[in-house]
Simulated assay, not measured.
Amino acid sequence: MDNFSTFVVFIDQWAWIGWLVLIAVFLVIEMLSLDFTFLMLSFGGLVGLVTDFLGVPVWIQIIIAGIAAALFILFLRPPLLRRLHRGADPARSNVDALVDLRGFALSDITQVSGQAKLANGDTWTARSSSPVPIPQGAPIAVTAINGATAIVRPLND
């Protein structure tokens, strides 16, 4: 028997260890990423391990494991992600909670400078989102936050 045949027989006999190592590596990466992608790849590796125990040739094991992993990613991962995020808190927080918050201009607000007092009691450096200056005391609403500056628009209500 030549070296290549010996190598093929060796791979065929010990492929199950390769599948176990691959599954373990994918599970460790999944624990670090928590995205379900590597979990699906480990499921594909599990399918490859099962096909090895059934005596399927290694090259077919790899194809079947790849197809299984792709199917898991396409059809199992999306509902798992939806289920995971189903109980997420819908309340906006941090900077997102400031968008659309109302207040009033503490000083004239232009596209360059100004100050605004928001309904939550915070005082922010502000810039107008429109070229028309907002006069002191006018009602405003936050349209965006840019660093430590609130981008505001005048309220016409």
Results as ranks from 00 to 15, higher is better:
23 I>Q: 14
19 W>T: 11
58 V>A: 15
70 A>P: 00
131 P>Y: 08
154 P>G: 10
73 I>N: 08
112 V>F: 01
115 Q>L: 09
62 I>R: 11
26 F>E: 01
79 P>T: 05
75 F>Y: 15
50 V>D: 04
2 D>I: 00
90 P>C: 07
33 S>I: 09
152 V>L: 00
138 A>H: 12
92 R>F: 10
137 G>M: 06
153 R>E: 07
78 P>C: 00
147 G>Y: 12
5 S>E: 13
24 A>Q: 04
72 F>L: 01
46 L>R: 03
9 V>G: 10
141 A>M: 11
55 G>Q: 06
48 G>E: 01
35 D>L: 00
121 G>N: 09
50 V>Y: 03
146 N>L: 09
83 R>D: 11
45 G>F: 03
114 G>R: 13
122 D>F: 01
101 L>N: 04
5 S>L: 14
150 A>E: 10
71 L>D: 04
43 F>K: 06
88 A>S: 15
39 L>S: 10
111 Q>L: 08
77 R>Q: 12
22 L>T: 06
83 R>F: 08
157 D>G: 13
79 P>V: 05
76 L>P: 14
68 A>E: 01
141 A>F: 12
87 G>Q: 15
117 K>W: 01
71 L>V: 13
112 V>Y: 04
51 T>D: 09
38 F>Q: 13
93 S>K: 06
13 Q>D: 13
